Simulated assay, not measured.
Amino acid sequence: MPLRVLLVDDVVEVRRLVRTSLRFRGGFEVVGEAADGPEAVRLASRLRPDVVVLDLDLPEIAGADLLSQVRAAAPEAKIVMPEEGGLGRLVELIESLEEDDEDDTTAAVIDLPHELSSVSRAREFVRERSAEWGIDEPLDDALLVVSELAANALTHAGSSYRVRLSATAEALRIEVDDDGAGTPEPQPLSETDEHGRGLYLVSALASSWGMGAAEGGGKRVWAELALPAPRAAGRAE
């Protein structure tokens, strides 16, 4: 069965580009399109898509409110939020959400406890695996992203969590599964409110990020960081 996709973006040219790319790739069905927040929530509830490609900067409902409402309307859907410059890999990213990657040799997993000290263990895990795989850039960004995702699991889910790291020729992917049912809420940086700062930084650093249900229950929050072109060229040879 094709993956059922809901496209949410107020720029019609962006929706047309993604829709056309998915059609040519095959294996996808665009079941709906929305140009504003209320329509996105309505279609998510009625269509129950497998994947929602979501622009958070929409009229009427935007940002954390939109993300929470879309997830409540379609709780089983995987939500993808491409950042600026992330559109080129979007089709492959959507496809990868449903692939079985148990045989992916460039992947590693660590289970961590509900302890503040586990955040440093998560960073060390990413540092060590990246060194094994020959990834030295963007290591600083990857360490910041895994720190923020781990802290999010500790603070908002209040549970132990699992970190999964994987790499392709184009991107380094960081996933964090926890037992929480809430929706992460990225907020603009401010001098008075620290809530949501971590996910705001994740969205700024990542080429794409998103969330969905974890395999064993709870939620999964993930982010992808683009790898430099020389690495991509080397892996492709």
Rank of each mutant, 00 (worst) to 15 (best):
D50E: 08
R48E: 14
F125S: 00
V221H: 11
E148S: 11
R71E: 11
A223I: 03
D177L: 01
D57T: 07
L139D: 04
P113E: 05
S208Q: 13
E115A: 00
V119Y: 02
A233I: 15
H114A: 08
E132W: 14
W222L: 09
S120K: 08
G26Y: 14
A34C: 01
E98W: 12
E185Q: 15
V11L: 07
V109M: 09
R162N: 01
L87F: 11
V126D: 06
L205K: 07
S45Y: 04
G63A: 04
L172E: 00
L47W: 05
P184W: 14
R71K: 11
D103H: 14
D136V: 13
D10N: 15
R127F: 04
D193R: 15
P75G: 10
L225N: 10
A223V: 13
L189R: 06
V30T: 05
A35D: 02
G63E: 01
L22C: 09
D178Y: 02
P228N: 14
F28C: 08
A233W: 13
P75A: 08
L66F: 10
V221S: 11
V30F: 09
L43S: 02
A131D: 05
G216E: 05
I135W: 12
Y161K: 01
V145P: 03
L172R: 00
L154F: 02
A108T: 01
D50T: 09
L54I: 13
R162S: 02
A229F: 10
P113C: 00
S203R: 14
V12A: 09
L172F: 03
R15N: 05
E185K: 12
E132S: 06
L165P: 03
D9A: 10
E33P: 00
D57M: 02
P49W: 13
E83D: 07
R123P: 08
L22T: 09
G37Q: 03
A157V: 04
A72H: 06
V126S: 08
G85D: 10
P188A: 06
A77V: 02
L3V: 15
V126P: 14
A151V: 03
I174L: 07
D178E: 00
H114I: 03
D136E: 15
L3F: 09
E29Y: 00
D103Y: 08
W209C: 06
T155M: 10
W222V: 04
L154V: 05
S166H: 06
S203V: 10
I135S: 05
P230W: 11
D55T: 03
R197Y: 15
E191S: 15
L199A: 09
A72F: 12
K219E: 01
E175D: 12
G216V: 05
A181C: 05
N152L: 02
R89Y: 10
E33I: 02
E191D: 15
E95C: 09
D103S: 15
P2K: 07
V5E: 01
E124F: 06
S68N: 10
E237Y: 08
E132A: 07
L199D: 10
N152Q: 08
A153T: 01
V52N: 06
L54E: 07
G217M: 01
V14Q: 02
D193K: 07
R46A: 13
L205S: 11
M81N: 10
